[in-house]
């Protein structure tokens, strides 16, 4: 896979420090599974955080001896080492990396797509634990030659290309590429090959559509 568009450093940093909303974190983690470059950036940021931790001034502990004693006392029963990882990696043979696979009801080939416009369909995914997470997460399918109506964003939009490709004002996005868009950007993606373009999209705030289709799409994306 030849990845040309990566996660922005500011977005990676929010992922590293745990402040990125879960819906957006799913997209970042799915890209990290296939992108050694971005994993290197995460490692760099965690090294920076580790350095800051080691260099910080020590606070005075109120109960150091007690803490140590409790750790040695309770500590020996071994927590099963990352037991969740023992679960078969791709339950549904989804063909997508695990951070996304864990949220898929079935394989990418069997998604019960819901039509939005001719040639454009979507499938909303649970956005977070108990659905309380901020933002939305969905799969989107664009048929060859079809266009997502022009829209702008009121927050951040992260798009990961899972199959096919699209082209917009910012460039050509192919399998594995990520489009990390801020609120000031307006665009109009067009699927530009003979295959369906399937992508994973997370937003932390509503999209704003303009033009003819806006009334049709606004109720779906403008939430």
């Amino acid at each position: 896979m030849n990845i040309r568009h990566h996660v922005g450093d500011d977005t990676l940093m929010a992922y590293v420090n745990g402040t990125l909303p879960e819906a957006l974190s799913v997209v970042v983690a799915t890209h990290l599974a296939i992108c050694p470059d971005c994993r290197r950036s995460v490692a760099m940021m965690e090294d920076m955080a580790g350095l800051l931790l080691m260099e910080s001034e020590p606070a005075e502990l109120l109960a150091a001896e007690k803490s140590l004693a409790e750790i040695f006392e309770g500590g020996e029963e071994q927590a099963p080492a990352s037991d969740d990882k023992a679960v078969s990696a791709d339950r549904y043979h989804t063909g997508v990396p695990r951070p996304l696979a864990d949220r898929m009801p079935t394989s990418l080939d069997n998604i019960p797509w819901r039509s939005l416009l001719p040639g454009i369909s979507h499938y909303p995914l649970a956005r977070g634990s108990a659905g309380k997470g901020k933002g939305t997460l969905r799969l989107l399918k664009i048929a060859p030659g079809k266009t997502i109506p022009v829209h702008s964003h009121t927050g951040q939009e992260l798009t990961l290309i899972l199959r096919g490709s699209y082209i917009d004002d910012l460039g050509r996005f192919q399998e594995g590429d990520i489009a990390d868009l801020d609120s000031d950007i307006q665009h109009q993606p067009v699927a530009d090959t003979a295959a369906d373009c399937i992508c994973l999209i997370a937003t932390d705030a509503p999209l704003k559509f303009s033009g003819f289709f806006s009334r049709l799409l606004q109720p779906v994306f403008g939430i």
């Binding site: 896979m1 745990g18 909303p21 974190s25 050694p36 965690e46 791709d90 634990s129």
Partner: peptide, 28 residues
Amino acid sequence: YTIARNVRIDRLRKELRPEPDPNDPCFV
């Protein structure tokens, strides 16, 4: 640092922070 971060997220957050799994067949 990463352990402390994850403990804090577990404690204070309802939201998860998914991570890539090196044992995933899709992992590059």
